[in-house]
Computed example of a mutant assay.
Amino acid sequence: MQRHPMTKEGADALQAELQKLKKEDRPTISNAIAEAREHGDLKENAEYHAAREQQGLIEARIKQIENMLGRVQIIDVTKLNPNGKVVFGATVTVLNVETDEEVTYQIVGEEEADLKHNKISVNSPIARALIAKEEGDEVVVKAPSGNIDYEIVEIQYI
């Protein structure tokens, strides 16, 4: 079985979601199904069918999270000794050489990538270009719109 890297923060968030699904959402939906059953004929009971569909979605998400957690390798970047290099879990500030714009990304696992929160997958083109580089290095990222030159301004292991 192939293990997938994940930050401790990402694994903790999945564990919290799993607990909420099992301890709050699952009992709530079971109660909703029982209540809808009391309304009589199940064939024409929209509340019952909606609750059963919701139950299916919850159970599927529980299985998905348990599967993910079963095959992750949790990497705590604060405990690594990367010698100033960009590694999985690092938070990297880069400067777009052409536009002079700075942006900060954290390199995370595939399942926890979230561009809205500047968390990029270790498999993304920019992360692949940054891995093993150091502060001051310039990297070229092959983007659909063309090559983008970045300079690594800062690397943090937080």
Rank of each mutant, 00 (worst) to 15 (best):
M1F: 09
H4K: 05
H4Y: 11
P5R: 15
M6K: 03
M6G: 01
K8H: 02
G10T: 07
A11E: 07
D12M: 05
A13I: 03
A13L: 14
A13E: 09
L14W: 03
L14P: 00
L14H: 01
E17D: 08
L18M: 04
K22I: 06
E24N: 06
T28E: 11
S30D: 13
A32V: 09
A32G: 00
A34S: 09
A34Q: 11
A34W: 00
A36V: 13
A36C: 03
R37I: 11
E38F: 00
E38A: 12
D41A: 02
N45V: 13
E47S: 11
E47P: 00
E47I: 02
H49D: 06
H49I: 14
A50P: 01
A51P: 12
A51K: 10
E53K: 15
E59H: 04
E59Y: 04
E59T: 12
A60W: 08
R61M: 06
R61C: 05
I62C: 01
Q64C: 06
I65Q: 08
E66Q: 11
N67H: 09
N67Q: 13
M68V: 13
M68A: 04
G70F: 03
R71H: 12
R71W: 05
I74E: 08
I75G: 01
D76E: 14
D76W: 10
T78R: 15
T78K: 14
K79H: 05
L80A: 05
N81F: 07
N81G: 02
G84F: 14
G84M: 08
K85C: 09
K85D: 02
K85R: 15
T91W: 09
T91K: 13
V92E: 07
V94K: 11
L95G: 11
N96K: 13
N96W: 10
V97T: 10
V97M: 10
T99G: 08
T99S: 15
D100K: 15
D100M: 15
T104S: 09
Y105V: 04
Q106A: 13
Q106K: 15
V108P: 10
E110T: 10
E111W: 14
E112W: 10
K116P: 00
K119Y: 15
I120S: 04
S121H: 10
S121T: 08
S121C: 11
V122L: 08
N123F: 11
P125C: 08
P125W: 09
P125Q: 07
I126E: 08
R128D: 04
R128A: 13
L130Y: 12
A132G: 05
K133N: 05
K133A: 02
E134A: 13
E135F: 07
G136H: 00
D137L: 04
E138P: 01
V139H: 07
V139Y: 11
V139I: 14
V139G: 02
V140I: 13
K142M: 04
A143S: 05
P144N: 06
S145E: 03
G146H: 02
Y150P: 09
E151Y: 01
I152W: 03
I152N: 00
V153N: 03
E154K: 15
I155C: 05
Y157A: 03
Y157C: 04
I158G: 01
I158S: 07
